[in-house]
């Protein structure tokens, strides 16, 4: 969902939302943010958080993980109204285009919605992840080649930076 194909379904169409809810149920997700330009929709599912064993996190993963959403409307709200950039897929995080090249972004890098911030590899398929927001990279929460989960926060962007 972070990517922008030329002809993607309108995220505000009822059929699309129904499909998203089906995928959330299947993967045991409790919360899903979808953004299309400056329009946003947040889907939340009550109960059964993390029930799916399929997406259970292995014990050795040291990464911070998106926690199941509590009832509080602003659950793990980052300080200073930072914007989260999340992984649209499980996979391996790559901070650079290829070994030996500089990272796509560092702390303090200015980004626009189209700026590529990293790649996520799954099954040898490489997804370029655009920032989808404007501002300055304030935090980088994962390391190069680290495994990440669906929806895991990768970066926090300061929109006023």
């Amino acid at each position: 969902m972070a990517d922008k194909p030329g002809s993607k379904p309108n995220p505000f169409d009822v059929e699309t939302i129904r499909e998203m809810v089906r995928l959330m149920t299947k993967h045991g997700l409790s919360e899903l943010d979808i953004q299309d330009g400056d329009r946003k929709v947040r889907l939340k599912r009550e109960g059964k958080e993390g029930a799916s064993s399929a997406v259970a996190l292995p014990a050795q993963a040291a990464a911070p993980v998106v926690s199941a959403a509590p009832a509080n409307p602003t659950p793990s709200a980052p300080p200073k109204n930072l914007i989260d950039i999340k992984s649209p897929t499980p996979g391996t995080f790559y901070s650079q285009e290829k070994p030996g090249t500089p990272p796509y972004v560092s702390k303090g890098t200015k980004v626009t919605p189209a700026t590529i911030v990293c790649q996520i590899e799954a099954m040898k398929l490489f997804n370029e992840i655009p920032a989808e927001c404007s501002g300055t990279i304030a935090e980088i929460l994962v390391e190069n080649k680290q495994p990440v989960e669906y929806g895991q926060i990768l970066f926090r962007v300061d929109p006023n930076g």
Partner: peptide, 14 residues
């Protein structure tokens, strides 16, 4: 190609 978002799954495309 420009598949719809729901079909951009690594498993499916691979």
């Amino acid at each position: 190609i420009f598949p719809p978002a729901i079909y951009r799954l690594p498993s499916l495309l691979t």
